[in-house]
Write a protein that binds this DNA or RNA. Structure first.
Lengths: 135, 135
DNA sequence: CTGTATCCGGAGCGATACTG
DNA sequence: CAGTATCGCTCCGGATACAG
């Protein structure tokens, strides 16, 4: 199968330590793949956005979490924080080149989920119906 | 910039509801992008694996979490569970076609993290050194 | 407007012990 | 070997109030 060959190549490029407990990517992964990380990165793809803009755009996030995740991604060099010394202050967030390259991967992932939502839901219903209708 | 154009196209294909609170992909994302989801899927890329094999391969995961995450991905139709009626019983997990297509995205993401670990670590050190050396 | 500080409930997760 | 059940702890995450 061509598909198998294809992604086995990708897999083969993964360093051996990817599954190690102390793999340095684990913390970053935890943030980016955390509850809000991917959505924040993706939200900045169309262009820079203000704090309040993100707060509105990403439905359901609290100020605390937005602030917290933003601090992380800024620290990782994925997002740039630009402060306009005006009154009231305006803070603009935008993707760095590094963040843009990550955004491509994340958008691909989000696209996959969107595209395969029907299949995923169908599988769940099949699973739930087959085994434990009581639960 | 060519890069911008490129992933803006990808982004444009995302449904408008991707950022909605009730987006149906959120629960699945939560699992797959949870602490172990991606690693489990990725671990099955080279081929089917047994429970104990996964337990060893994915460093640091507990039986409870492995079992729990496996149940989820099976329910989502991403992984197939095959029980050999032998004594002692042998259970083999393998990716479904749906799971394989997801695995491609996840492997790409893992690859990105592996490839950009130096840049990410450098950014962190820069950030930490610049502002709060006391902490 | 853009955050930070505090409190608090619940989910996630690990360790351990137990079952088939 | 392949799980399930229970306990306990940590940390995530929301609501609210406060600060620059």
């Amino acid at each position: 199968m061509a598909v198998s060959e294809q992604f086995k190549d990708v897999f083969a490029q993964l360093p051996a330590g990817s599954f190690d407990k102390d793999c340095p990517t684990r913390p970053v992964m935890a943030q980016v793949t955390g509850r809000w990380g991917a959505l924040i990165i993706a939200a900045l793809v169309p262009g820079p956005m203000r704090f309040s803009g993100l707060h509105q755009h990403i439905d359901g996030i609290s100020q605390k979490m937005l602030s917290q995740y933003l601090k992380s991604v800024v620290r990782y060099g994925l997002v740039e924080r630009l402060v306009e010394p005006t009154v009231p202050p305006q803070v603009t967030y935008s993707l760095t080149p590094l963040g843009q390259s990550l955004a491509q991967q994340l958008c691909a992932l989000l696209s996959w989920f969107s595209a395969n939502t029907p299949a995923l839901e169908a599988a769940q219903q099949r699973y739930d119906a087959a085994d434990s209708p009581a639960r």
